[in-house]
Design a protein around this nucleic acid. Structure first.
Length: 845
DNA sequence: AGCACGCCGACT
DNA sequence: GTCGGCGTGCTC
């Protein structure tokens, strides 16, 4: 018999490999790489994925067991996705099963359910004559036992859970019956399918009969009569949701229940239909005429598509240059080729307007994968893709795994967004996965952005032979021909010097006042991310930074000192500014709430919409707030980065950035890049319509290159400066990073083990000739920073330490690190150490 | 991860 | 004496 190699759903170190199973003849034609199966695993039944099959079971050391069940007729994973999973598990140092699970909806994460049924045949040796007799005629001495057996017989088989509910006190009896072989247990995998069920009311008898019953209804049962009449009135809409009936008539469930008991009606479970966009009309759109620049880009991409060979492009186009129209037209072309396309957008940009643009062009050939969909809705959208009923999948990060058979095009919009990196295991980057998939399918990738990530831009420009290097395409002008808005930098040090201690400069204050008078709108951006505080001098703009790592030091209140999160450097918190001696040195980090309060104080009666994590957690609230603002029900929209996204309102003529510095001084080597991207994005959004726009950027460090270049919409200069900076300090793209985080309940043990790790890794790297500082004059280098306390030093009673590994060249750094981690398996097991790896981390705070 | 086996302390 | 704590090892 053939054997199947199966990855089982048991996320542990020593089960992270395939297990062999015999393929029963009944399943032979159905089993493929990617099939989801139920397999016996020790005492239990678990879910697994077939990775490959082998023709004949060579004499094995193991007694192979057969596959128990095939869980889907169409495999949820295609062979290429199985292979992709293998690649992911290596590249991101995660288990195979987690890589595979990241690719499919959680609805398909089945769990074992235990069933109880009567034993197939009496067990001869343990309970000879007795058992047979029991089965024949319930001739049991114990009435409780008889009750249980009778119940199970009536149902054929009962889930253990349901049985325990039915007989809550009799667990011991059930156990005994199992032991005696009267009952037997089996397990199957049950999908975690959240089929949306709803209690609904329906007539249990023909309409005429119900109408007749209505006529001679007992007088005292008026409520029941009302219910019945209500149902008959709406007979063509039956079954009606129970909730609705109760609410419209203000009756209690008792009345309905009574009618059910009398046999007039029935309360049933109906499945609720799940199409998040059902009943919505999307206005069809036609392809727009492309500008010269657009045409050039379009043709270059089409040429690549025509070859049906892999190709990747980095489309760098200024805001408003018309990237989306290029996406739409290349997708059309891809569909005409008989292939399918994936569109990736950052979670936060996946707004109804965004969806509308694609549904407007491609109608119901589009599936949308949105994190706000319920598990069931996601599952249904995903099935449309797998069954080939749609040609385009649009969604956030995980849509990169859309199971298309003939993938021709993957578009990643706003490719610089850090949300493309998953922060949980498997910690993959959708950009890398996209490019890897494109190689498997001979597909084309378009990475689009007005402010490409440094890594992408550098890879494109250096034209390396790296399989991940894209080809650069640029668009410098706006499609509609309007110019980018004027941006003014306001030096907040001057404000302080001249006696203005408020968070609003005089210019911004006057700007807001003017907008209020004219009935125009203002957007205020507070670009604060994370919660760490840094120390800055309000007189001169000095920021305490690490002498070794050139990132801001973080203030720690408990010890009243400043620390570096990369290398562990610590210094006492200064009382006066070390640079200018001013006493106006303090911790920074203003919240949106404080800005809102100050606005109310300065402009009595001002209508402010505040948008931050506090006001947008509720489903759809983000959208609601923006709509309210669009309808001019507020004068000011105030928020964190999220306001920068939906920013396309005709009456917004002023955009103010409260302090550009707050994201600039985060302890993250990407701080300047993130700041530049955010400011550019904000600046590019204002004045898109008739009214001219103004942008004010307030800053205590107005000379910083990221602020100056952003104000001039000058990506090229920013890139030049930032690359120089990264090169001199040995940060990506001039090296790569691996973050290793250790956690343990006891701090001393944790520190010792983290040091052990470092020593071991260093030793191995030395032997290979890799170990050394990054400024060493060799191509292959690996350096280890730390271990130091993590930015969040304790989570759930576990202390956390981390090591950052910097490396470059043609070395298998991930493999080596993994190797060292594997060798610490003993400590992990015995001392409950936890180790987590993040390859190419994005968030370093 | 679970589930069983097995070896030691606190109870009827 | 036994019940049950959780350390250790295994799952095709």
């Amino acid at each position: 018999m053939d054997i199947a190699k199966v990855i089982v759903d048991v996320p542990a170190k020593d089960t992270d490999r395939t297990f062999d199973y015999l393929i029963p003849d009944s399943m032979r034609t159905w089993i493929e790489p990617g099939s989801r199966v139920a397999v016996p695993f020790g005492k239990r039944t678990v879910q697994g994925f077939v990775t490959s099959m082998q023709p004949e079971a060579e004499p094995s050391r193991f007694k192979l067991r057969p596959l128990q069940e095939l869980l889907d007729l169409v495999p949820p994973l295609s062979p290429d996705l199985v292979e992709l999973g293998e690649w992911m598990s290596e590249r991101y140092a995660c288990s195979r099963i987690l890589a595979l699970q990241a690719m499919i909806p959680t609805a398909l994460k089945g769990k074992a359910e235990r069933y109880i049924s009567l034993a197939d045949r009496p067990v001869a040796d343990e309970a000879p004559a007795d058992a047979g007799a029991l089965l024949e005629d319930d001739g049991m001495s114990d009435p409780v036992e008889r009750g249980i057996v009778t119940y199970i017989r009536s149902k054929q088989q009962v889930a253990l859970q349901a049985l325990s509910r039915q007989f809550p006190q009799e667990a011991a009896v059930i156990k005994a019956l199992l032991r005696r072989g009267v009952l037997q247990e089996s397990q199957t995998i049950r999908d975690k399918l959240q089929k949306k069920m709803l209690k609904a009311v329906n007539l249990a008898v023909p309409v005429e009969e119900a109408e007749a019953a209505l006529d001679d209804f007992p007088k005292k049962a008026q409520r029941q009569k009302e219910v019945l009449a209500f149902l008959l009135e709406r007979k063509e809409f039956l079954p009606l949701p129970l909730k609705e009936v109760l609410a419209s008539l203000h009756v209690s469930a008792a009345a309905v229940k009574a009618l059910e008991n009398k046999g007039h009606l029935r309360i049933e479970d109906v499945e609720v239909f799940r199409d998040p966009y059902r009943g919505r009309y999307f206005k069809p759109t036609q392809p727009l005429k492309l500008t010269g620049e657009q045409q050039y880009v379009f043709e270059r991409v089409i040429r690549q598509l025509e070859t049906r060979e892999q190709g990747a492009f980095l489309l760098h186009g200024v805001t408003g240059s018309g990237k989306t129209e290029i996406y739409l037209q290349t997708i059309s072309h891809c569909i005409e080729q008989g292939r399918q396309a994936i569109v990736l957008v950052p979670e936060i940009s996946l707004t109804p307007q965004m969806v509308e643009r694609f549904k407007g062009r491609f109608g119901d050939q589009v599936a949308v994968m949105h994190s706000r969909l319920s598990g069931g809705e996601r599952y249904d959208e995903w099935r449309k893709i797998r069954e080939g009923r749609v040609k385009v999948a649009i969604g956030a990060r995980s849509a990169v795994f859309a199971p298309f058979a003939k993938l021709g095009l993957i578009i990643m919009d706003e490719e610089h967004e850090s949300s493309y990196k998953q922060e949980e295991t498997p910690k993959y980057h959708a950009r890398d996965v996209a490019i890897r998939r494109s190689h498997q399918h001979g597909a084309v990738v378009i990475l689009g952005s007005a402010t490409p990530a440094l890594e992408s831009y550098h890879a494109a420009r250096s034209q390396s032979n790296d399989e991940f290097a894209p080809l650069l395409l640029e668009m410098h002008t706006r499609a509609l021909g309007n110019t980018l808005p004027e941006v003014r930098i306001v030096d907040m040090r001057d404000e302080l010097r001249e006696g203005n201690r408020s968070m609003f400069s005089r210019a911004l204050h006057d700007g807001i006042a003017g907008r209020l008078e004219r009935g125009e709108q203002t957007v205020l951006l507070l670009n604060r991310r994370g919660y760490s505080t840094f120390v800055m001098c309000r007189s001169c703009g000095y920021v305490a930074g690490c002498p070794e790592c050139d990132i801001s030091l973080t203030y720690h209140q408990r010890s009243n000192n400043l620390r570096c999160h990369y290398c562990g450097y610590a210094a006492p918190a200064p009382e006066v500014c070390p640079d200018c001696g001013s006493e106006h040195i303090r911790y920074f980090g203003t919240g949106t709430q404080r800005v809102e309060e100050e606005l109310a104080k300065l402009f009595p009666g001002i209508r402010v919409i505040r948008m931050d994590v506090d006001t947008t957690t509720e489903k759809g609230s983000h959208e609601k707030l923006l709509t309210r603002f669009r309808e001019k029900k507020a004068d000011v929209l105030l928020g964190t980065q999220m306001v920068a996204k939906g920013l396309d309102f005709p009456d917004v003529t002023l955009v103010g950035v409260i302090t550009a510095d707050s994201s600039l001084n985060l302890p993250d080597f990407r701080a300047a890049e993130k700041t530049f991207q955010l400011l550019t994005q904000v600046a590019g959004r204002a004045g898109r319509h008739q009214l001219p726009g103004e942008v004010f950027i307030q800053s205590y460090t107005p000379d910083h290159y990221s602020i100056i270049h952003a104000s001039r919409h000058d990506y090229a200069s920013f890139i030049r400066d930032e690359l120089n900076h990264r090169r001199s300090l040995h940060y990506p793209p001039y090296c790569r990073l691996i973050m290793v985080t250790f956690s343990h309940e006891q701090l001393p043990v944790l520190v010792r083990l983290a040091e052990n790790f470092k020593a071991s890794l260093e030793g191995k790297a030395r032997k290979l000739g890799w170990f050394g500082a990054m400024d060493r004059f060799t191509p292959d280098v690996l350096d280890i920073l730390g271990p130091v306390a993590s930015p969040v030093p304790r989570i759930k009673n576990r202390y956390r330490f981390q090591c950052m590994i910097k490396w470059r060249g043609q070395i298998d750094a991930v493999g080596l690190v993994r190797n060292v981690v594997d060798e610490m398996a003993d400590a992990v097991q015995r001392q409950h150490l936890q180790i987590s790896l993040d390859v190419d981390p994005q968030m370093l705070m």
